[in-house]
């Protein structure tokens, strides 16, 4: 199994249910980590591989829904809820807060595994995006101050001439900078650079028709 092998994190207070759930997922070839309570889970380290959180709603102390609320905004795996007696308000609240699925015990392994796979896929995508952004940020960090001035001008669509005038540079010099920016940011084309800039949330401050209002 590679380091990228996904893992399912189970939070369940009932020993028999926890035991059975773990057994089932292992039988499905999943890596599993089990936690007795929300507190125990909170103390554990966030996994570095794609993961899914299988969360019982009825937990002693902090229940599953509360844990979800606490995790909101943090870097955490997608959640699949399990409940002994699911009610509609709870499920609505869970889904609204980003849960992948809300399952009622006892549930079939098919439904369970589908929910888990969906959650893992979502986690993989998030991780990839985050890695790409990190890469772009690293590239952006390599730009010289002058290149960082040039970047917003060219992605704003200014002509070389305009951009050069804006920075009080010669057009040739600007073109050199522009080439360096494209190269350093790993952009294949100007359009690619625009996309990257959008991703990096670099503001578009100019247009060919004049300076935009800040």
């Amino acid at each position: 199994m590679t380091a990228e092998a996904p893992i399912v994190l189970i939070v369940e207070d009932d020993a028999r249910a926890r035991e059975a759930l773990g057994e089932l997922l292992v039988a499905h070839g999943m890596r599993v980590a089990v936690y007795v309570s929300a507190e125990e889970y909170a103390r554990a380290a966030t996994p570095t591989v794609p993961a899914c959180l299988l969360l019982d709603v009825e937990l002693p102390g902090i229940n599953g829904l509360d844990l979800q609320a606490e995790l909101t905004g943090a870097d955490h795996p997608p959640i699949v809820f399990l409940t002994g007696h699911g009610d509609i308000p709870s499920s609505v609240r869970a889904i609204r807060h980003g849960a992948v699925d809300f399952l009622t015990k006892p549930c079939s392994d098919t439904a369970l595994m589908a929910a888990i796979e969906a959650a893992l896929a979502q986690d993989r995508r998030i991780r990839a995006e985050r890695a790409e952004l990190e890469r772009l940020r690293a590239r952006y960090a390599m730009l010289t101050p002058r290149e960082r001035q040039v970047l917003p001008l060219i992605v704003s669509g200014l002509l070389n001439k305009q951009a050069a005038a804006e920075l009080k540079l010669s057009e040739v010099t600007l073109q050199v900078h522009k080439r360096n920016v494209l190269r350093k940011m790993g952009a294949d084309s100007l359009a690619d650079l625009v996309r990257i800039a959008l991703w990096l949330r670099i503001p578009v401050t100019h247009s060919r028709r004049g300076k935009r209002e800040a």
Binding site: A20, A27, H85
Partner: peptide, 24 residues
Amino acid sequence: ASIAHEVNQPLAAVVWNSQACQRW
């Protein structure tokens, strides 16, 4: 509702163990 929780835990365990057994 309350009885269900009491009963559902062992029941869910039975279900999941059965499916695991089936997988094994």
